[in-house]
Design a protein around this nucleic acid. Structure first.
Lengths: 135, 135
DNA sequence: ATAGGTGCAAATTCTTTGCTATTAA
DNA sequence: TTAATAGCAAAGAATTTGCACCTAT
């Protein structure tokens, strides 16, 4: 098994240890925005000996390589996501649920705003805080 | 002196102590995005005995009252801003400078996207990460 | 063979909190 | 007068790191 994420790590010159492979799989499989602790717990179900330090180190490396994005939504925990194309979020201010979405109008607008301001866009984060409409 | 921020705090039922007044002034005067520690240092230049605990407590109250917004840009420090109308930021990925901007097209689009998704917008944050164009 | 990675525990860093004394309202 | 707030120091929580051992390349 050679996921895209694994390949990118190898290309970046990282050693592919068992622990790293497990953390990468957890991250790759996640369709939510897990905290470090959650990633650790999930990794433990595969290998009970994997340490939280390794999880921290791995996530930090992935962050540096821009293979994951780090967020802090309502709480103060670091939360991670791999799906780098859909970085728009609606956070429910009541429940705290995080819902992802994608919108091309937004992409286009953001791109041109950055350009107008004299910047070449590298990445971006948009977080909408809202309340479910009852209607 | 009765700044708007002070007025809002009083209206919210907070006691206006000397320390609080100083922290509010620091926040109000800031045109950057100071960390808790920076706010503390600035407050100290006015009153050398003000404690960091008080700064934390004051900023937390302001955050709860939505009189400041809490950010975490490139570093992992909480950073604060009072200017709640201009919550769009470009972060220079090289220098780390944070530049604020305002864009009505964006406001409008975000508002309608939230609505389309079934949310009533309460607040939002947009962070663009970019690199200065040399051209 | 060896540069890089791991686990563990200790150390750091940031933030909160219990307590007693103080003070704005 | 009294409920809220301050300062201090201790406690907590999240994250990083030094070190001795291990392993992918």
């Amino acid at each position: 098994m050679e996921t895209d994420l694994i390949r990118r790590c190898i290309d970046a010159g990282l050693k592919m240890t068992d622990q790293r492979r497990i953390v990468l799989k957890v991250i790759d499989d996640a369709d939510d925005h897990p905290s470090v602790d959650t990633v650790h717990q999930r990794a433990r179900t595969v290998d009970g000996t994997i340490s939280i330090a390794t999880v921290y180190r791995t996530l930090n490396v992935l962050d540096e390589l821009n293979l994951v994005r780090r967020h802090e939504f309502n709480d103060k925990l670091s939360r991670f996501e791999t799906n780098l194309d859909q970085h728009h979020h609606v956070i429910d201010v009541d429940g705290g649920d995080v819902h992802e979405f994608q919108d091309s109008r937004l992409e286009t607008l953001i791109e041109s705003i950055a350009s107008e301001l004299g910047y070449e866009l590298v990445d971006h984060k948009l977080e909408l805080y809202g309340r479910r409409k009852s209607s």
